[in-house]
Design a binder for these strands. Structure first.
Length: 834
RNA sequence: GCGAGAGUGGCGGAACUGGCAGACGCACUGGACUUAGGAUCCAGCGCCUUGCGCGUGGGGGUUCAACUCCCCCCUCUCGCACCA
């Protein structure tokens, strides 16, 4: 036993030896390996899995420390805890590394995984390592391919030609988040729109449910829920046809303000609107309109995304007719109308829409108010659009109706007349999952000249990405890999070509939480029974940067997998904790800023327990954490203090007198015993209510401070051994989830035969925690003037008397009239004087 | 512009349901031990004009009592951004 053998003088907290010892043991014994057990309550805690970029960074340290405390705490509370880890292993950086260093992406990825796994183990994280997954393995993505085919069959996957963000110099499609101010995030060259075929997932079919089920996510931060709600962006209104004047055809518009339809004075089309061609063909405006469109599109491309260009447009020369009034409406092309939203055509109501208003004023178009607030609007003199509520005016039979009522009435009328209907528009787009990249999961489709896009038969799955087994082949995109590319059609047997796009890596991360349930299953994506037991994830933890993409896709996938019969849950993550960033010198850590702290160095210098403690102590988890090297030092000091404190009081562990009799305790012992139980209560509350480990830790620090005052050789009155022992054991029990190696070592060193991890979380004894004296605050006119120490049972009248008799109080009350005295039981007295 | 969150000592952060503002830690100051101290221990530590003093971004309000509730304003962070 390392501790007992050393003489007190030389005692040192040797974290290297201690951490290595316990990690070795955990590696051998696998104490955190779990299986489904319906007899026990389960708890599934999950941290967002990392991309194997090469090394763990400090944000990972924080994320996994938080998750590990929760996992260990829940185990001590008797839960059967699933706590897995894996690798989000497909992605662009591997290809970049391949280009730069000539290593195959697979080799690069697997060696990174091996290194980072070692780093995680050096942190002492309590994962069930037997469940580790890597998404780049065919054993993983074969199920994704299977799901893809099932969705294809259900019509939830489709292929279409669309405009994508294309980087010429990298020769690839970029995801929207990889386009920064119109430029490529890697090479900074201009991103251009390009029309290409791609595969899409019909997330819009689930828009309604994705929106409605946000209400079930009570355990999510409000912020994330709101962001998702905005992202989905439901708006309800009227889709309505405006027939063209003097020719066949119509313009369909969408509006959320059908109540303003009598105020339409012109029509605006997006520059990309397909109708424009036929409207202007052969007219004298043709050249001018074409020139305008060309310039607008160019401008749109060049414009930095964070500024709005001035509104401008051009008259096409054509008119359409307002279906309600038959009035002629001039048709404009306008630079602010988006083809991607609604129908690409907007009925313009300058009196009630600020953009239309600005446009109308600029081009001298009429402004006609039709929704009148109390103070009557005048189209000629208005200075801004009125977007508020009001009563309809100049609106035919609808005049006089309040706007809200008018909306419904006008929609009903349009439906009855057959030129419009109630319509809902979504901001959410279908999810384009095709990537022209090598390092991703192949899309299991074969293109045949006569049969078209043919699904790969299920029994031929997985479609394995070529060249991922050593010796590694080329990392070139799949269409350059002849033997992969060329195949035969499963339907007609003719020569055919495989799909060469791979899937967006967000696909893999959308369902990994489910694969952890039965990661080695070769018969299905998930073992149904185990899934029923373990899912959903009780606590998910990760960065807020995934608030939309990953978390929305995972919710979507959960519903897809449910509808395919794999899962029986509606939502994947019952509770979500979005941890803040780790910052240094006021800025996010980044290589370019040169303020990066390498966890490796820290663990070398202080040990994992200290680093974990600091990551938990410096800020509550949801807030940004300012990295402070001196703060780390302070945590290290704390560990050393506790170490010495326990070493100096080993004697109290030798006696095994367990009973603590409240009535027999000396006042100092009673006080320590009380503090011990108050600390248990406080730490438990901090963890249970909001995972505020920072306050939990400071609670334990207070207890340690108090023990220090009454323990050891220097103490004036040595504490009773049983009380001291209880206090010290409590310190170890409460700190264990945060600093497991340290606490296990001391637990063993103080003569316990069973490991600390098998112990239950301590229960607090309310009667032990109870105070028998109270400090009553005495205020005069609301200001603190004195304090009274009274027994708990002191009555109100007595407290009043004592307060008035208090010397410091009477110096304020002397010569004044006491107006009233307010007594708050157990807390304070406030004497109000004039 | 819209939406969300935040603003407390030199710093990170505490404060239950309206009831002691500044727990805990860092930094700093003084002392002890010491050849030495960047170890350890002890003490101090919001501000000032030192008093019926001031103080939780600013201004008002409700209240016996406000970091906490209400109104107005300022600043910062994040997200979305011409969404019809």
């Amino acid at each position: 036993m390392t501790i007992m053998d050393t003489s007190r003088q030389d005692l040192k907290y040797d974290f290297r030896q201690i951490e290595a010892k316990w990690q070795r043991l955990w590696q051998e014994e696998k104490p955190d390996k779990v299986s489904a057990d319906p007899q026990r309550p389960k708890y599934y805690v999950l941290e967002m899995f990392p991309y194997p970029s090469g090394r763990i960074h400090i944000g990972h340290v924080r994320n996994y420390s938080i998750g590990d405390v929760i996992a260990r705490y829940k185990r001590m509370r008797g839960f059967n805890v699933l706590h897995p880890m894996g690798w989000d292993a497909f992605g662009l950086p591997a290809e970049n590394a391949a280009l730069k260093h000539g290593v195959h992406p697979a080799e690069w990825t697997y060696s990174n995984i091996a290194y980072m796994r070692g780093q995680l183990k050096a942190m002492g994280l309590s994962y069930d390592w037997d469940r580790e997954i890597a998404t780049c393995r065919p054993e993983y993505y074969r199920w994704e391919q299977r799901v893809f085919l099932q969705l294809l069959e259900k019509g939830l996957v489709y292929r279409k030609k669309t405009t994508v963000n294309w980087c010429e110099s990298c020769a690839t499609v970029l995801a929207r988040e990889q386009v920064i101010n119109g430029c490529c995030w890697r090479c900074d060259s201009q991103v251009v729109p390009k029309n290409m075929h791609g595969w899409f997932l019909k997330i819009t079919d689930y828009a309604e449910e994705l929106l409605a089920d946000l209400d079930k996510l009570g355990g999510w931060p409000e912020k994330v829920v709101t962001m998702q709600r905005n992202w989905i962006g439901k708006s309800q209104g009227l889709a309505c046809d405006f027939p063209l004047e003097g020719r066949d055809g119509k313009i369909t518009i969408f509006t959320t303000r059908p109540d303003t339809i009598f105020g339409v004075t012109f029509m605006s089309l997006a520059p990309e609107h397909p109708l424009i061609d036929s409207l202007i063909a052969g007219t004298e405006q043709e050249a001018a309109v074409r020139g305008f469109i060309e310039q607008t599109l160019l401008e749109k491309q060049r414009m930095a995304l964070d500024q709005e260009p001035e509104k401008h447009g051009i008259f096409t020369g054509a008119y359409c007719l307002n279906p309600f009034t038959g009035e002629r409406v001039p048709i404009y092309v306008a630079n602010f109308v988006l083809m991607e939203y609604g129908t690409g055509a907007v009925m313009a109501v300058p009196a009630h829409d600020q953009r239309d208003f600005e446009f109308a004023r600029k081009y001298g178009l009429p402004v006609r108010p039709v929704v009148q607030p109390e103070e009557r609007l005048d189209g000629g003199s208005m200075e801004a659009a009125w977007e508020g509520d009001g009563v309809l005016a100049d609106s035919g039979t609808f005049s006089g109706l309040p706007a809200a009522e008018a909306k419904q009435a006008i929609i009903a009328e349009a439906e009855q007349q057959g030129f419009g209907k109630a319509h809902t528009t979504w901001r959410l787009r279908d999810w384009g999952i095709s990537r022209q990249r090598y390092w991703g999961a192949p899309i299991p489709v074969i293109h045949c000249e006569s049969c078209g896009a043919v699904p790969v038969p299920a029994e031929q799955l997985p479609v394995v990405l070529p060249g991922t087994e050593p010796p590694y082949g080329s990392s070139a995109p799949l269409h350059q890999q002849e033997d992969f590319y060329t195949t035969t059609c499963p339907k007609c047997g003719q020569p055919a070509k495989r799909e060469t796009d791979t899937m967006d890596t967000f696909m893999e991360s959308s369902w990994y939480f489910a694969r952890y349930i039965s990661p080695r299953s070769e018969t299905g994506l998930i073992d149904h029974e185990a899934g029923t037991y373990w899912l959903s994830v009780d606590q998910y933890i990760g960065g807020v940067e995934h608030a939309i993409l990953h978390l929305l896709y995972s919710r979507f996938f959960t519903k897809l997998l449910r509808d395919l019969g794999y899962l029986s849950i509606d939502e994947p993550f019952s509770n979500l904790l979005t941890q803040g960033m780790v910052i240094k010198d006021g800025a996010k850590m980044s290589k370019s800023k040169g303020n990066v702290v390498d966890p490796n160095d820290l663990i070398q210098q202080y040990g994992a327990d200290t680093v974990r403690l600091f990551a938990l102590f410096a800020a509550p988890p949801e807030r940004d954490l300012e990295w402070n090297p001196q703060g780390v030092e302070g945590c290290f000091r704390f560990l050393n203090r506790v170490f010495r404190l326990i070493q100096g009081n080993l004697a109290c562990f030798e006696e095994h007198e367990d009973r603590i009799d409240l009535d027999q305790l000396a006042p100092a012992d009673r006080q320590l015993h009380r503090k011990t139980h108050q600390t248990i209560r406080r730490v438990t509350d901090s963890i249970e209510t909001n995972f505020h480990f920072n306050t939990a830790i400071s609670g334990v620090m207070e207890l340690v401070n108090q023990v220090s005052a009454v323990a050891g050789e220097d103490a004036a009155e040595p504490a009773a051994p049983a009380v001291l022992r209880e206090a010290l054991e409590t310190v170890l029990l409460l700190l264990f989830p945060m600093m497991p190696h340290f606490c296990e070592e001391l637990w063993q060193g103080t003569g316990h035969s069973q490991p600390l991890r098998t112990q239950s979380w301590p229960e607090f004894d309310p009667s032990a925690a109870e105070e028998d004296e109270l400090t009553i605050i005495v205020q005069v006119n609301g200001k603190l003037r004195s304090r009274l120490q009274v027994p708990v049972e002191t009555g109100e009248e007595e407290i009043k008397t004592l307060a008035l008799a208090d010397e410091r109080v009477s110096s304020f009350t002397a010569g004044r009239t006491v107006q009233k005295i307010i007594v708050v039981k157990g807390k304070l007295v406030n004497i109000v004087i004039r």
